[in-house]
Each structure stands twice: as C-alpha cells, then as structure tokens.
C-alpha cells in the first residue's frame, strides 16, 4: 500500500510504484476529472498540480510524488477565479479538456497574475482543445486575473 496526498487528504492505493499518476488517480482513486487522451504528454488533458506546478500526470510516476501535494480540479475551491471565470465566459463546449486546461491556467496565473494576450498564447499553446474554445479560454484567463485581484484585495 502506498500513501498519496490528493486535494489535502491522504489516500492509500494498491498500485505498482511505476504506474503513471494519471492511472492511479483514475483507476485506483476515482478522480475521473483527470482525463486520459494521448498518454504521451502532448495534449494537457491529464494535467494536475503537483506542489502547485501544472504537470502532465501521464508521464509522472507514482513513486515520484509520494511526498507531494497533488491537486485535481476538485481541489480548487468553487469560487476559485478560474472556475468562476470559466463559467462566466461560458468556456467549455464538450468540456473534456477543460479540467486540465483550467489547472494549467491556475498555475500560469499564480506566476503571471496580469498576463498579456501574447503571454497567454505562449503559456497555453501546448494544450489541445478540439472543440475550439480557445477564444473563450483567453477571455476567461483575463477575467480570472481580474477576479484574483479583487479576491486578494
């Protein structure tokens, strides 16, 4: 049995230490908001926060994160600026890619609280959204940045 810290709670899993974190989260712990899509770190849909950094859980292995704090989309509070902005701007279409993209956006905003369009283009260029919600993702990131200032103040 291995203990893993997800969304602030310790959880025990019976999995091989070499199992990708993606599958531990989905298969063993039932965090199906962490999506499988490419399995080779190309799409960004399995992104989780590992000690606050957005990482692709398909290429992170269980034994690498035993001491880490893992955050899935459920771990962000409901009034998190990214969640509020995503709803306000009506971002998701099919929505399958969004949890991963939102977590990457949350990480990005924590490092760049007031991003320009060009900075968003660069930071979010390595994720895939097949539905084409990009224009709204960009608007929502700007809005989340403004909301974060408000919440912080």
């Amino acid at each position: 049995m291995i203990t893993l810290n997800v969304n602030g709670k310790k959880r025990t899993v019976d999995a091989d230490p070499g199992t990708p974190l993606l599958w531990v989260l989905r298969d063993n712990l039932g965090f199906t908001s962490v999506k499988y899509t490419c399995g080779i770190s190309e799409c960004g849909m399995c992104t989780v926060l590992i000690d606050g950094d957005a990482q692709r859980s398909c290429i992170v292995y269980l034994d690498e994160v035993l001491e880490s704090e893992i955050t899935t989309i459920e771990g962000l509070p409901e009034d998190h600026p990214v969640k509020v902005a995503w709803i306000e701007k009506q971002v998701p279409q099919c929505g399958y890619c969004q949890p991963g993209i939102m977590l990457q956006a949350a990480d990005f905003l924590s490092r760049e609280p007031n991003p320009t369009d060009v900075q968003i283009d660069e930071a979010m260029d390595n994720v895939i959204c097949r539905c084409g919600s990009h224009p709204r993702i960009k608007k929502a990131i700007h809005l989340a940045a403004r909301l974060a200032v408000k919440q912080g103040g």
């Binding site: 908001s33 989309i73 459920e74 969640k83 995503w86 971002v91 929505g95 969004q98 949890p99 939102m102």
Partner: peptide, 9 residues
C-alpha cells in the same frame, strides 16, 4: 451543462 463541466463533475 457548463457548471458541472467547469467543476470537473
């Protein structure tokens, strides 16, 4: 359907 999608539900 967007509320649930944004919450990962």
């Amino acid at each position: 359907d967007i509320q649930d999608k944004a919450m990962g539900k």
